[in-house]
Design a protein around this nucleic acid. Structure first.
Lengths: 198, 198, 198, 198
DNA sequence: CATGAATGAGTGTTCATTCAT
DNA sequence: TATGAATGAACACTCATTCAT
């Protein structure tokens, strides 16, 4: 009767350790040894659960996204159109510790994606899903008359997501000027601007 | 009789080399040896002019900013108010190879700043200057009646800069959806929105 | 009630697996995990039947020799003297894929033997048996008048076996110049040379 | 005035260290660390003089061959035809410590060549030169009437070189049966056999 | 000043071996 | 007996840094 561990569970343990390190000390500090130590294992264990370091990092990125999606799903339940969109975009802003950590991780991967095709592919795939979701919420809001129909909705989608990402970066780098209240206010203004009367 | 070397000049040579490498091959390719080679010196020379590698990288970041400021000064010459602001923000978007490389450099430093107080300090200082400039151009535009006076100008400043940063990230990571034309269109729409009639 | 496992049988299964890997992929590919997997067991099982990896490799070498001997025994059945000798020496040449793989295995062990007393001992023991067999076939051929009696038969034995080994090496390393036809021709010439008339 | 070392000299130092380890402990023991230590340097030094480990090993092989060629050139000076051939072949037998070491190194590379195209290429190139030399000495001997003209000289070349390699292996693995005197005697018999009267 | 040789810690990865289950 | 999780040392290689010349 062998000692039998749940592989997915163990992977998650290690991936969580990786996430903690990336958030605390940066992507550069996330060496395989550091990850193993943070997870409470010897460095050799990683080989049992991951093909290589990239596998760990990619899993960490995907895991982070999955968490966000889960949280979002709860928040969006029962909401539609503009209200759902607002919830989604607000959730993407680093307004508390948890989401600030998520944004930090994301930023670490951004620059690394520029020189790693595999990472970039994952990044793009996940971003495309988010963009698609925003776009369809906008479409629904337009259909129901919640928002004006003058603007190109693809443009609006891009503008909203860019603004959210920009504000997120600023919140982490320049918290003094990008306070939580200002972020929320700016986002709401942006959404109100879409309404028919505006 | 010691050879009289202009320290600042030599530092600049090396820093330029570092900047070129980061722009061309990314932050991770900027090893001390690669920098020394790019500058045309032996690797040992770095020790005479820099405390350590971080000293070089920080200087490279500042140097990149200085170059941007110089280019901007030329572009802004003779322009005021909204026209100047438009020039400034457009210049910050990665609309050609050169500025795409600059954005890449910037993104590399963003994530490092999150775990390096020294980098973060530099980053903040330079960002504050840019913010101040935008804010004062907006102030001038408001005074001259070029833009409406309803909005809080600090909010507008933050919104514009966040949008520019967000669009920049998207242009690099998702060039398909963030084409040069869309970026320019979105920026112009944002500026027109400020005008009194809007 | 302990499960009653036939130790020798299990050892043989594992050793066969090791042999297959060495023949197929080379000595360096024969890691303990690869061997266990090839045998259809978990890696931990090896500890029950072998002292260590060397124990497995040594056994694999012996196993390969044993197989060669078996094959030879079939080929030699009913033959005596020079005809038997010819069959034996031909069998030792890597004239088909199977025997080329065997020669590769052998060569791998040769160099390891130079720095491993245990391996060397096995190697010598097996080589002695082969030498003895050749020598006695030569003796029989001399007695029956099949070959001339001028030469020292120990010298002839050594010459024939050295030639076979040298040709084998050349066939693997320089197949262009050591084609199968040339090998066979050279061997036959060598045997004919022993005949009384020559 | 920088400390300036002769690169080729330093490479040779390291390559000699590698040779010593390979001969003493086998090719497997020739790790980069072991080589650096044997050479009296830290492990990082290798990077200055070699592209990678293969570069060291290949250099060791070539260096060994170069030494042999040099020694041979001296021995062959003033000799031609059969006498030169005899000197060449004798020199290739491991009849003293130095040449036993050379043979040991060679054998280590043989098996590794089977799974390393780069090594195999070098091995083949060097072997081709030796083969060519033997062949032309045989040609000269035939022209001058020193040897009989019945045999195909390519066959003879292959036979002689295979015999030498086979005897060399046996001398290292089975010194008891492949004594220096027997090797020499067998080689001379082989050469005499070529003479017209034989 | 400048060189570049040298260091040694650190990287990701592999692997024989141990051992609780 | 058999499992496979876990270990930790070893591997080749990279790199910022030091320092004699």
């Amino acid at each position: 009767m062998p000692k039998n561990v749940n592989h997915d569970e163990r992977r998650e343990e290690v991936v969580d350790a990786a996430r903690r390190i990336i958030l605390r000390d940066g992507l550069e500090a996330a060496t395989t040894r550091a990850i193993a130590r943070e997870a409470g294992y010897s460095n050799g264990v990683l080989a049992h659960y991951f093909a290589d370091k990239d596998d760990i990092l990619l899993s960490a990125l995907r895991s982070s996204h999955r968490r966000i999606v889960h949280r979002l799903r709860r928040k969006l339940a029962g909401r539609t159109g503009l209200a759902a969109l607002r919830e989604l975009l607000l959730d993407n802003l680093p307004l508390d510790e948890e989401r600030a950590a998520e944004t930090g991780l994301e930023m670490g991967f951004w620059s690394r994606s520029l020189s790693s095709p595999a990472l970039l592919a994952v990044q793009r795939q996940e971003a495309a899903e988010l963009r698609h979701l925003v776009r369809s919420l906008l479409g629904a809001a337009a259909s129901s008359g919640e928002i004006a129909t003058g603007d190109d909705l693809d443009d609006v989608t891009e503008r909203l997501l860019a603004l959210v990402d920009g504000l997120s970066v600023h919140r982490l780098l320049y918290p003094d000027r990008a306070g939580a209240d200002r972020l929320e206010r700016l986002l709401d203004a942006e959404l109100n601007r879409l309404r028919p009367g505006a």
